[in-house]
Computed example of a mutant assay.
Amino acid sequence: MRIPSRLIGGAVVAALLTQLTACGTLFFPDRRGQIEGKVDPVIVALDAIGILFYVIPGLIAFGVDFATGAIYLPGGKTAQVDPHTLNKAIAADGKVDKVRLQAILESELGQRLPLNDPRLIQHKGSVEQLAMYGLKPAA
């Protein structure tokens, strides 16, 4: 009879420990340190579920998520690269060399972008857009 009671006790302790931690801090540790922004409704819902089961740990989860900033959605990040630098990625036939473009973006932005990912959606530009950047259209 002792084994089932230990098993139940262990499950209760594990449930309480998971409720003492904040959902946003666990699921999105990269969001910590934000001080404002839009609140993530998924994290709010998960913290609210914690309040339904255990009031005090659920409130602690809300407090921890707000204090660390993990409850906020990440802000939009933008980056710009000089068009003249991007000219180096265009081959003589007018096609973009993905390897060169990836190297330029990695050196300029400090991030490695998967340009050879099959899910990548490529859009064709217009002649006006090319002229705006001082590029000649080539077919």
Rank of each mutant, 00 (worst) to 15 (best):
T21Y: 10
D65P: 00
R2F: 14
I43P: 02
H84M: 11
V42R: 08
G94R: 08
K95D: 06
K136Q: 10
L130W: 08
V39S: 01
C23T: 15
P137N: 09
K98E: 01
I104T: 08
P41N: 09
Q19K: 02
L113G: 02
F28I: 06
M1T: 13
I51F: 01
A15N: 07
L59H: 01
Q111C: 07
R100K: 15
D47C: 13
G94S: 12
K98Q: 06
L86W: 08
L115C: 05
N116Q: 13
L115V: 04
A15Q: 04
Q80S: 13
D47I: 13
P137R: 13
L52N: 01
A79W: 10
P137V: 14
D82Q: 12
I35A: 06
A14F: 14
I121L: 03
A139D: 07
D117T: 04
G94F: 10
L59I: 14
A103Y: 09
M132H: 11
I104W: 05
L113V: 13
L26N: 04
G10M: 11
R119F: 10
L120S: 06
D47F: 05
A67Y: 11
L73N: 00
Q80P: 01
P4R: 08
D47W: 06
A14G: 10
F27A: 12
Q102G: 08
A48V: 10
M1F: 14
A22P: 00
V127Q: 09
L46N: 09
Y54K: 00
S5M: 15
V13K: 00
Q80I: 14
L17Y: 12
S107M: 02
L17W: 13
I60Q: 09
L16M: 08
A15M: 12
I121S: 02
D82M: 01
K95I: 09
Q80F: 11
L113P: 00
R31P: 02
G24C: 09
L20R: 05
A11K: 00
G37E: 09
G50C: 05
G75L: 09
M1C: 04
V96G: 04
N87G: 12
V81C: 02
I90L: 11
T18Q: 02
R31M: 02
V127W: 06
Q111S: 09
G9S: 11
E108G: 02
L101R: 11
K77D: 03
E36C: 07
E106W: 12
V44S: 01
K77Q: 04
V55R: 12
I8M: 13
G24T: 04
L16P: 00
F62D: 03
L109R: 04
T68K: 01
G58L: 10
A139Y: 11
G58A: 01
L59P: 05
G50K: 15
I60H: 08
L52F: 14
D97A: 03
G94T: 06
F53H: 00
Q129M: 12
Q129E: 14
P4K: 07
Q80C: 04
A22D: 04
H123L: 12
P74S: 14
G76N: 07
F66A: 03
D93W: 15
Q34K: 07
L26C: 04
G69V: 06
I121A: 05
I121G: 03
G24V: 11
V39R: 02
L105P: 00
